[in-house]
């Protein structure tokens, strides 16, 4: 008994390290970002608060470019809105029986990014909207340029978003003019690029084609811009699928304000 006790006291530091290492590895092995405890993530009350406080200072740095981009986007949407409005008016004049006053399929919640990483091999963002603002796990997140990610965890006032720059997020995307969908995966190399994989060989493409979300998932509506094809990676003969390098539209180093997309249609499953 004394021998065992002496063994433990002599190797004390080793056992302390062993216990802590095992604890760390247990934490590490909870690989699914949806199952992790919110307390060990950056969306908890304390770290969320710290991040918002820091953002209160640094948030002003990019305002000029952000403003410019928003104005451009607004002008574009205004244009679209006007043309759609006139089209709608024509329809209403021709056929007054159709009911067009249905609820819109998607609604938007505007949020501010309080924390964002791009240097890790798995990146997440934190938004200053949470359960109290009716944000739910699985909602899509985009900004004025394109897709940003998917809400993975929600606390009362903060939401954690699993970024496109995270191999654990796989988005269903397609080329703008094609129906067949592929998968968008980040390979961890550059925050400017991701890979589009599993696109059938018969797809007609050109370098520079726009990639958009396919709308086959529950979260994203069809047609949210993702990026443009920058090069073909593989098309070997024994492979029936194409894979591309995609230059992302969203600049993840300056994601300041985003909108969370809420799907109002009931899930069919």
């Amino acid at each position: 008994m004394l021998l065992i006790l002496r063994f433990f006291t002599k190797n004390g530091p080793f056992f302390t390290w062993l216990v802590l290492a095992v604890f760390s590895i247990v934490l590490l092995c909870q690989t699914n970002p949806y199952h992790r405890s919110v307390w060990f993530g950056s969306a908890n009350v304390v770290s969320g608060g710290v991040c918002s406080a820091v953002d209160g200072v640094t948030g002003y740095f990019n305002l000029r470019t952000t403003n410019m981009e928003l104005m451009e986007r607004m002008a574009q949407l205004e244009e679209e809105n006007l043309s759609l409005r006139s089209e709608l008016q024509q329809w209403l004049d021709n056929d007054s029986t159709s009911d067009l006053r249905k609820e819109l399929p998607y609604s938007f919640i505007v949020a501010h990014v309080v924390n964002n990483t791009i240097t890790q091999s798995e990146n997440y963002l934190v938004l200053n909207r949470g359960e109290a603002d009716s944000v739910k796990v699985g909602m899509a997140v985009a900004n004025q340029r394109g897709v940003v990610g998917l809400v993975s965890k929600v606390s009362k006032h903060y939401a954690q978003v699993i970024s496109v720059l995270n191999p654990k997020l796989q988005l269903s995307v397609c080329l703008q003019h094609e129906q067949s969908a592929g998968t968008l995966i980040w390979d961890g190399e550059s925050p400017m690029y991701a890979r589009l994989e599993d696109l059938p060989r018969n797809v007609v493409y050109e370098v520079g084609d726009t990639v958009v979300t396919s709308g086959y998932g529950v979260s994203f509506p069809r047609g949210v811009p993702v990026g443009r094809i920058s090069e073909l990676i593989s098309s070997s003969n024994n492979n029936n699928f194409l894979s591309f390098r995609v230059e992302l539209f969203t600049h993840f180093d300056r994601v300041n304000d985003v909108y969370i997309i809420q799907n109002n249609q009931p899930c069919p499953f």
Partner: peptide, 29 residues
């Protein structure tokens, strides 16, 4: 033992902000 524990705590705090639970804690301890 206290030194190792201090390393673990510092690592865990970095982990919380990086969303990598356990990673920095393991390396730091």
């Amino acid at each position: 033992n206290l030194q190792i524990l201090a390393g673990f705590l510092v690592g865990l705090i970095v982990d919380i902000f990086c969303n990598t639970p356990g990673l920095h804690a393991l390396a730091c301890s």
